[in-house]
Write a protein that binds this DNA or RNA. Structure first.
Length: 360
DNA sequence: AAGGCGTGGCC
DNA sequence: TGGCCAAGCCT
C-alpha cells in the first residue's frame, strides 16, 4: 500500500470522531448522512440525521412521506432541494429497484440528488466498491500533498484530482480510506492555519516543502452577493375562536422553494408606507385591513449569495381574505402553522414574537 | 459551464 | 466586522 495511504488510515484509527452513521454499512443510513452532510458541517447535521432516521427508518417509509413532511424535517438545514430530491430518489428506489439500493456508483448516480461524490461514498462505504470520493476535503488534502494548482472549481479539476485520488485509494478497504482522507481534511488539514508541525504526512507534503500550504487549494470563483429587500405582511383574522393567517407557498425559481412564508412585497430598498401604497398587493391589503401595524425595526438575514433585509407588518382583518387568495396562498390557523416548513428568517421571527397572535 | 441554492461558524 | 468556508447537486 502507498505509505501516504497507510499513514492516513493510522491517523484515522486514532483520531476519528464517533458519529451515529459510523460503524454501520446500511446504504439507507449512509445515504441520509451523506446528503445531510453536503455543504453542511457535522455539528449542524447530526441532530437532523438522528431525527430523520427515527421518523423514517428505511427507504420504503421515506418513500411514503409527503414533500411537506420531509421539508418540515429539513427546516433550518438549508439547500432544501436535497430534501425534495431525496423523496424522489426514495420513491425511485421503491418503484424501480424493488426497494433495494443500487450497489454501484454508476447506477447510484442515476438517482435524483446523487452525484459523483455521494455515489462514490455510498458504494464504497456500503458495498466496498473501490471508487475514490472527491469532496472539498479531498480537494484540499490532495492539492497540498501534490502541490496541485488546478483550480478546484474549474472543469479540469474533476479529471486531475480523480487521478490523484485513485492513486492513493486503498482498494482493499475503500470505504475506510475514503472516510479517512475526508476526516483528515476536516480535522487536521483544515483550510486556515493547519497544524503542519504535527502532521503525519509532513514528509510527503509538497506544499509544506514549498511553504505554499496557505495558497492551496486554488479557487477562481468569487462570490457575488445580491441584496434584496422584503416587506412581509402577517394577516391576522379571528374565526370561530381560532386565529388564522395567510401563508405564501414559494414555488420554483427562487430561494426557499417548497417552503412557506408570508405574502410579501419585494423592492430594491426598504419602502415607506407611502411608497408601498403604490404597490398592487398593498391596495388589496387595504381593502381587507382594519389596521396595519409595523413591527419596529428591520431584520437582516445573511445568506451565502444573498443579503436579505426584511420589514414585517401585522395586518388586522375583519373581513375575509377572499380578495387575496389564489393558488399559492393558504389560510392557516395558528395551530396548523407548525406543520408548514418555514425559512429560518420566518421561523426566527415567529419565535421572537410569540405573542403576535394574542391580539388577534 | 457558470450560477443558483441556506445556514451557521470561524477569524 | 464581513468574507470565506462546509462530507455537492442541478440546470
Amino acid at each position: 500500500m502507498n505509505p501516504v495511504s497507510a499513514a492516513l488510515l493510522i491517523w484515522y484509527k486514532n483520531n476519528k470522531r464517533i458519529l451515529p452513521w459510523r460503524e454501520i454499512t446500511d446504504p439507507y443510513h449512509i445515504w441520509i448522512s451523506e446528503v445531510i452532510l453536503q455543504q453542511t458541517r457535522v455539528n449542524q447535521g447530526v441532530d437532523y440525521y438522528l431525527r430523520f432516521v427515527e421518523q423514517w427508518p428505511d427507504v420504503k417509509q421515506l418513500a411514503s412521506a409527503s414533500e411537506q413532511e420531509v421539508l418540515k424535517m429539513w427546516q433550518g438545514l438549508g439547500y432544501y432541494s436535497r430534501a425534495r430530491n431525496m423523496l424522489v430518489a426514495a420513491q425511485e428506489i421503491v418503484n424501480k429497484y424493488n426497494g433495494l439500493f443500487p450497489r454501484s456508483a454508476d447506477e447510484l448516480k442515476k438517482l435524483k440528488g446523487i452525484g459523483d461524490y455521494t455515489a462514490a461514498a455510498i458504494s464504497s462505504i456500503a458495498f466496498d466498491e473501490p471508487v475514490a470520493v472527491i469532496d472539498g476535503n479531498v480537494f484540499r488534502v490532495l492539492s497540498r500533498l501534490f502541490n496541485e494548482e488546478t483550480a478546484i472549481d474549474s472543469s479540469a479539476a474533476k479529471t486531475t484530482f480523480r487521478m490523484l485520488a485513485d492513486s492513493l485509494l486503498d482498494k482493499s478497504n475503500p470505504g475506510e480510506f475514503n472516510q479517512a482522507i475526508m476526516e483528515f481534511g476536516a480535522l487536521h488539514c483544515v483550510p486556515k492555519n493547519p497544524d503542519c508541525r504535527t502532521c503525519p504526512l509532513q514528509d510527503s507534503c509538497l506544499a509544506f516543502a514549498l511553504k505554499k500550504v496557505d495558497q492551496l487549494p486554488v479557487k477562481k470563483n468569487k462570490i457575488k452577493i445580491r441584496k434584496r429587500f422584503l416587506h412581509y405582511f402577517i394577516f391576522l383574522q379571528k374565526e370561530q375562536q381560532q386565529c388564522y393567517t395567510l401563508l405564501k407557498y414559494r414555488g420554483s425559481g427562487d430561494v426557499w422553494q417548497g417552503l412557506y412564508d408570508f405574502p410579501c412585497i419585494e423592492s430594491d430598498r426598504i419602502l415607506s408606507i407611502a411608497e408601498l401604497d403604490h404597490e398592487q398587493l398593498f391596495t388589496a391589503i387595504k381593502a381587507v385591513a382594519t389596521e396595519i401595524i409595523p413591527i419596529p425595526g428591520i431584520r437582516k438575514h445573511i445568506l451565502t449569495h444573498q443579503h436579505l433585509t426584511a420589514k414585517f407588518y401585522v395586518v388586522k382583518c375583519k373581513n375575509g381574505f377572499e380578495h387575496l387568495k389564489n393558488n399559492s396562498l393558504s389560510l392557516v390557523s395558528q395551530t396548523e402553522l407548525g406543520n408548514y416548513p418555514l425559512p429560518r428568517l420566518i421561523d426566527q421571527f415567529l419565535h421572537e414574537n410569540e405573542n403576535l397572535f394574542d391580539n388577534c
